[in-house]
Computed example of a mutant assay.
Amino acid sequence: MTVRAGTFLRLSCAALFLSVGVGSMAASTELPPPSEAPLLTVDGEIAVTSDGTRAVFDLPMLRSLPQQKFSTSTVWTEGVHEFAGVPLRALLDSLGVAEDASVSATAINDYAVEIPAEAIEDDAPIIAYEIDGAAFSRREKGPLWIVFPFDLSERYRTEVKYGQSIWQLDRLTVHP
């Protein structure tokens, strides 16, 4: 396997970030309370909580996590849009969730979907909190929407992935 110097440097920096980040995360099992209106509640098999049983995030807290952006079309919108948000894997990692855990995602209207562990990659899906550089409202499928980079690969353009792309997300439950 050939690894270019730039790739090696990026991988080394990522490993350092993860070892420092995971070490400091393990020391703290308490998430600070949201300072703005809560947008997302996570419960279940998590190590880091806001109140001992669940983690509650507002928009600034979500923005403080690693971010991912991509442009893609969707079957629900016209044209290509840029989505920005936190990768689901990064959010789960920040809460000390096991790599093999699955997630139940639930919307404001109680619509729920299961996202198995094998569908949660490092960069996809994201929990989008911006579309085309701006926050989006409930009317626009927000304020949070699980989005895959559909235009990147055929593997994202399946009925299963479309079904997992829940909008108006407000709750996640982590299962072992």
Results as ranks from 00 to 15, higher is better:
residue 1 M to C: 14
residue 3 V to Y: 14
residue 3 V to L: 13
residue 3 V to I: 15
residue 4 R to C: 05
residue 4 R to G: 09
residue 9 L to M: 15
residue 10 R to C: 12
residue 10 R to I: 09
residue 10 R to G: 05
residue 12 S to G: 15
residue 13 C to N: 12
residue 13 C to Y: 09
residue 14 A to N: 15
residue 17 F to R: 12
residue 17 F to Q: 07
residue 20 V to E: 15
residue 20 V to G: 14
residue 24 S to C: 12
residue 24 S to P: 05
residue 27 A to G: 13
residue 28 S to M: 04
residue 30 E to I: 10
residue 31 L to Q: 13
residue 32 P to V: 01
residue 32 P to I: 00
residue 36 E to K: 15
residue 36 E to L: 06
residue 38 P to H: 15
residue 39 L to Q: 14
residue 40 L to G: 12
residue 40 L to R: 01
residue 42 V to G: 08
residue 44 G to I: 03
residue 44 G to R: 09
residue 45 E to C: 05
residue 46 I to V: 13
residue 46 I to H: 06
residue 47 A to S: 09
residue 48 V to C: 04
residue 50 S to L: 12
residue 52 G to Q: 08
residue 58 D to G: 08
residue 58 D to C: 11
residue 58 D to H: 10
residue 58 D to T: 06
residue 59 L to Q: 10
residue 61 M to S: 11
residue 62 L to D: 13
residue 63 R to Q: 15
residue 64 S to V: 04
residue 65 L to T: 01
residue 66 P to S: 06
residue 66 P to R: 07
residue 67 Q to H: 07
residue 67 Q to C: 06
residue 68 Q to C: 05
residue 70 F to S: 03
residue 71 S to D: 06
residue 73 S to D: 01
residue 75 V to H: 03
residue 76 W to Q: 07
residue 78 E to H: 10
residue 78 E to Y: 03
residue 79 G to K: 01
residue 80 V to K: 09
residue 82 E to G: 11
residue 82 E to F: 14
residue 89 R to H: 11
residue 90 A to R: 12
residue 91 L to H: 10
residue 93 D to Y: 11
residue 94 S to A: 09
residue 94 S to H: 08
residue 96 G to P: 12
residue 97 V to L: 04
residue 99 E to Y: 08
residue 99 E to G: 02
residue 99 E to M: 05
residue 100 D to T: 08
residue 102 S to V: 07
residue 103 V to E: 04
residue 103 V to A: 10
residue 105 A to K: 03
residue 107 A to W: 07
residue 108 I to S: 09
residue 109 N to L: 09
residue 109 N to R: 12
residue 109 N to A: 08
residue 110 D to I: 04
residue 111 Y to D: 05
residue 113 V to H: 03
residue 114 E to I: 04
residue 115 I to E: 04
residue 116 P to N: 10
residue 119 A to I: 00
residue 122 D to I: 10
residue 122 D to N: 09
residue 125 P to T: 02
residue 126 I to Q: 02
residue 126 I to C: 01
residue 130 E to H: 00
residue 134 A to Y: 07
residue 135 A to K: 02
residue 135 A to M: 00
residue 137 S to A: 01
residue 137 S to F: 01
residue 137 S to R: 00
residue 138 R to L: 02
residue 139 R to K: 05
residue 142 G to E: 02
residue 142 G to M: 00
residue 142 G to A: 02
residue 144 L to R: 07
residue 145 W to P: 03
residue 145 W to D: 02
residue 147 V to Q: 08
residue 150 F to A: 01
residue 150 F to S: 00
residue 151 D to E: 11
residue 152 L to F: 10
residue 154 E to N: 13
residue 155 R to T: 04
residue 157 R to M: 12
residue 159 E to T: 10
residue 159 E to M: 14
residue 161 K to R: 07
residue 162 Y to D: 04
residue 162 Y to T: 03
residue 164 Q to H: 11
residue 164 Q to G: 07
residue 166 I to A: 05
residue 166 I to C: 08
residue 166 I to L: 15
residue 167 W to A: 01
residue 170 D to G: 05
residue 170 D to K: 09
residue 171 R to E: 11
residue 171 R to K: 14
residue 172 L to Y: 15
residue 173 T to F: 14
residue 173 T to W: 13
residue 173 T to A: 09
residue 174 V to W: 03
residue 175 H to L: 01
